[in-house]
Amino acid sequence: MNEQESISYLTQQQAAEIDDLLMGNLGFSIDQLMELAGLSVASAVAEVYKPSEYNRVLVICGPGNNGGDGLVAARHLHHFGYKPSIWYPKRTPKPLYAGLVTQLESLSVPFISIDSLPQEFLNFDIIVDAIFGFSFQGNPRPPFDDLIMSMASLSAHYPEHQKSPVIVSVDIPSGWHVEDGDRSGDGTRPDMLVSLTAPKLCARTFSGRYHFLGGRFVPPSVMQKYKLRLPKYPGTAMCVQIGNSCQIKVEDPVPAKFLQKNVEADPFLQFQKWFDDAVATGLKDPDAMALSTANKDGKPCVSPILLSFFLLQIIIGQNSSRMVQLKKVDREGFVWCSNYGSRKGHEIAENPHASLLFYWNTLNRQDLTIEA
């Protein structure tokens, strides 16, 4: 078993106990831990999303410590060359949080009004979800409940030619249970999760593209007390990528054959298992899929001309197959971004049937899904 496969996950109670230890006998202060956490989050963002391509950042801050982590991350992102903006509707009146706000205001980092979201999503490349941490219990209340729903369905609201913002969740994706994950199915679906101190149990169900760990401050006594197995931080880094290979171990990445007895009766459950396998192997773009449609006569739209012109047909969009990105899958079906005025939009309107093909070369597997 390698280091990533043996990483520890914390329960809600264990996470709270470790925080109490750190801020008790071990001498850490809340502002010190918040500073280290926010720096870790900003460092993880900078590892993947370069400011030359993902410059505009919206940091959504909740009223507690998770929101404070977001405020600190925004300050560091500003110094890293990004252009952060803050949405902070429920400000905590404590001096620590007021000071974090003052620091951002001194850098001319804008604070967005409460009424301007989620309409403002369109203006950003990255959304940092710093709403609720591991201590949150119950159901989100306004204005966060509607906001979480908007983030959960974010990609479906974007036209085909425009990429949706990537979502980076701080420690716990908003709308998730700290141990059970997104048990309602309505929580945030982040592209990146930055776990702090140690991953919480909900991180086992995270299937986004990037998983980082931050919080390079856990003393040996805490490691021993809770038998924590954590990865080593490289060099002077404040974060370390732990990916998804620590969550799902693929014993045989290239199965010799498929047996009917091993196939789930529920096709959605079977697809999710195969998709998790593809993510766990580190396969590039496992969510890329070929979408094929046909017109009302059931025919593809490639003109009957010489084969040498086929490439030209692809370039000008006359073919009936194209690559799209899977944004969501549940029992209602598969979701991808599309423009209703596009060729595939017209074809699906005329002939509401399509097929999706996932090609996972590392697994020697192709997954064909027929959608009606």
Rank of each mutant, 00 (worst) to 15 (best):
M1P: 00
E3R: 05
Q4H: 03
S6Y: 01
L10I: 03
T11R: 11
I18F: 05
M23W: 01
F28A: 02
S29W: 08
D31R: 02
E35V: 03
A44R: 04
V45N: 10
E47C: 14
Y49D: 06
N65C: 04
A73E: 12
L77S: 05
R91Q: 12
P95V: 12
P95N: 12
L96F: 08
T102L: 12
E105Y: 08
S106P: 00
I112M: 13
E120G: 03
E120W: 07
L122D: 09
N123R: 15
D125S: 14
I131N: 07
S150P: 00
Y158D: 06
Q162P: 07
K163P: 11
K163Y: 07
S164Y: 10
S164M: 07
V170N: 06
D171H: 04
I172C: 14
S174W: 05
R183S: 11
D186M: 13
G187Q: 13
T188K: 02
S195T: 01
L196D: 03
R204K: 09
Y210P: 01
V218R: 03
P219A: 09
K225N: 13
K225F: 08
Y226F: 15
Y226L: 07
K232H: 10
P234T: 05
T236E: 05
A237C: 10
C239G: 07
C239Q: 08
C246V: 06
I248T: 10
A256N: 04
F268W: 14
L269F: 11
Q270C: 12
Q270G: 04
K284D: 13
V302G: 03
P304I: 03
F309E: 12
I315V: 10
I316Q: 14
S320I: 03
Q325L: 08
L326G: 05
K328R: 11
G333W: 09
W336R: 06
W336M: 13
N339S: 14
S342C: 06
S342M: 12
H346W: 10
L357N: 07
N364M: 10
D367E: 04
T369V: 15
